[in-house]
Design a protein around this nucleic acid. Structure first.
Lengths: 150, 150
DNA sequence: GCTGTCTAGTCTTATTTTAGAACCAGATTG
DNA sequence: CAATCTGGTTCTAAAATAAGACTAGACAGC
């Protein structure tokens, strides 16, 4: 049957997942953060079928997460570049990275790592309160503002 | 063909998406953060097919994101509770929520909102450097430590 | 400026996943 | 102790995915 959609949901989490919550989209965005920009580069790096990649890139462009720009090397080809909206996914990617790093690797198992410009490992993501105090999950709740459920 | 897997990937983002990056898992976890614990509650709230939910819950328990505990009301039923590993997904959910909120709603459109215990809206997720300075995407890079690609 | 190769796709097909409904066993309620 | 609620499992049709064959236009060498 047709896959369930959440593009109308009142919950931003549901809407976000509806937009980019499939197997490939966030991996494409991750690669874009790593500097990949060309169709062939994504295809080689991810090992994704070209048809899938084509569909996904088209959707990401439609969503204004990526945009088509003239190739940087002056050729007639085009490249996929992150938009502002795409760059705003940075915390999501980092969150997944830190969770995966913390819970999905055996001790000593090789994995890539996020570092700052000086090569120093970055800290953990922090959710600040309005006053700047770090908040944990148990100190927050979801307030329903809309009309419908959730 | 069988869906591609990334459980062996060197990149923690890929491994995390392999574990919880499907349409439903993160929505189930979101609901768990909102306090839902029973099969029927998830099923009603998400409108998910029971077969899907059953499969997803089993996988989340296997991954140790959720665990089965005796029902809080003393009945013979069981409930699904977030584990430590599940609670650590909080920043991921919040990241998706903030992105969705910022980019997927028209001005004034109703949506749910994350607030602290005093009812104050929370701030944006922050990625601090080791010294505590907030970092943007352009100030970080991925260091490859493993043997294989990415 | 012709030929071969590269890029960026589309199309086709087999297989897997999903949605939705029907069904069922054990627990709980009246 | 009969009806209903809870928490599933099983079945089927439709949709998504993977993988490879195919193609049009760009580009590079000669």
């Amino acid at each position: 049957m047709k896959r369930t959609g959440f593009s109308e949901a009142d919950c931003p989490v549901a809407r976000a997942l509806d937009a980019i919550g499939d197997w490939w989209s966030l991996l494409i965005v991750r690669d874009a953060f790593d500097g990949l920009r060309r169709f062939g580069d994504f295809q080689k790096n991810l090992g994704i079928a070209k048809g899938m990649l084509s569909t996904r890139l088209r959707k990401l462009v439609e969503l204004d997460v990526l945009e088509l720009v003239p190739a940087a090397d002056g050729s007639a080809y085009q490249e996929y570049a992150l938009t502002r909206r795409g760059r705003d996914l940075f915390p999501v990617i980092v969150g997944l990275r830190q969770w995966g790093e913390a819970h999905l690797y055996a001790r000593g198992e090789a994995h890539s790592d996020l570092v700052d410009q000086a090569g120093q490992p970055v800290g953990q993501l922090v959710l600040p309160s309005r006053t700047g105090r770090p908040l944990t999950w148990s100190e927050t709740k979801v307030r329903k503002v809309g009309a419908r459920k959730r």
